[in-house]
Computed example of a mutant assay.
Amino acid sequence: MSQLLETLLKHHRKQLSRYALVGALATLSHYALFLALIPSLPALLASLLGAGLGTWISYQGNNRWTFSRANGDARANQALRFCMSAAGYNLGNALLMLLLLRLEPDSPLLMQVLSTLCLTLVSYWINRTWTFKNELA
């Protein structure tokens, strides 16, 4: 294997593992708030508020660690791109939760897990190829 290919693979493994760790922390935060709010709020609203917290944590972690720039500054339009991709993710989450809760209204946690699993790969691809494109890890 060429040196260039090895370096590129190492870079992508590092970036993917960082993305996964940030995503795990964001997801744990999402779920913690979701579970704390579900006794007093409708499941969909609890899910959306948890998603908002998870989104903020995801942006901070990915901007500062996964896709950080050498000078530490984000490009001017990066936050806007992240907000747009997060809005798409959260809209997808809300729509999927509406559908899943109609199918199984007594299992909101299971439905949230299924929604998260379905949307994770899509969000990684969007963030990797568009939101943080050309950022260095």
Results as ranks from 00 to 15, higher is better:
129 T>G: 15
4 L>C: 06
91 L>D: 07
89 Y>K: 03
34 F>P: 01
2 S>P: 05
128 R>P: 01
7 T>Q: 15
119 L>S: 04
34 F>I: 01
101 L>N: 03
48 L>E: 08
109 L>R: 13
11 H>E: 14
73 D>Y: 14
97 M>N: 00
104 E>M: 12
36 A>G: 11
7 T>W: 06
31 Y>E: 10
89 Y>G: 01
100 L>K: 01
135 E>T: 14
98 L>A: 12
134 N>K: 12
13 R>Y: 14
91 L>T: 15
7 T>V: 14
132 F>S: 00
65 W>S: 01
69 R>G: 11
118 C>R: 03
2 S>R: 09
136 L>T: 15
70 A>M: 07
123 S>W: 04
28 L>P: 05
2 S>C: 04
81 R>A: 10
100 L>A: 06
50 G>K: 02
97 M>L: 08
131 T>D: 04
34 F>N: 02
63 N>M: 06
1 M>P: 10
63 N>A: 13
9 L>N: 12
135 E>S: 15
102 R>V: 12
133 K>S: 11
136 L>C: 08
71 N>I: 06
120 T>R: 02
88 G>H: 02
25 L>E: 00
66 T>L: 08
14 K>D: 15
75 R>M: 09
66 T>V: 11
128 R>A: 07
6 E>Y: 07
31 Y>W: 12
90 N>W: 05
54 G>L: 02
119 L>T: 01
113 V>P: 04
45 L>N: 04
15 Q>N: 11
68 S>K: 13
78 Q>A: 07
62 N>I: 00
81 R>E: 07
82 F>D: 03
8 L>A: 14
81 R>K: 13
20 A>G: 14
120 T>Y: 07
25 L>V: 09
80 L>M: 10
131 T>M: 04
10 K>Q: 13
49 L>F: 05
55 T>H: 00
82 F>E: 02
41 L>M: 13
125 W>V: 08
102 R>D: 10
46 A>D: 01
96 L>Y: 01
99 L>V: 08
20 A>Y: 10
14 K>G: 14
5 L>D: 08
94 A>L: 05
89 Y>N: 05
130 W>Q: 05
69 R>V: 13
72 G>F: 02
94 A>C: 08
59 Y>E: 00
61 G>N: 01
57 I>M: 09
106 D>Y: 05
79 A>L: 15
34 F>A: 02
54 G>I: 03
28 L>N: 11
119 L>K: 01
120 T>F: 08
48 L>H: 04
120 T>D: 05
45 L>D: 03
21 L>I: 13
40 S>L: 09
127 N>D: 14
52 G>H: 05
1 M>Y: 10
70 A>Q: 11
30 H>Q: 10
16 L>G: 14
74 A>E: 05
21 L>F: 13
47 S>N: 13
111 M>N: 06
71 N>H: 09
122 V>L: 10
67 F>C: 03
106 D>Q: 13
33 L>G: 06
27 T>W: 04
53 L>K: 04
46 A>Y: 01
73 D>M: 15
79 A>R: 11
39 P>A: 09
43 A>H: 06
75 R>V: 06
105 P>R: 11
26 A>H: 03
75 R>G: 14
104 E>F: 10
119 L>P: 00
57 I>K: 09
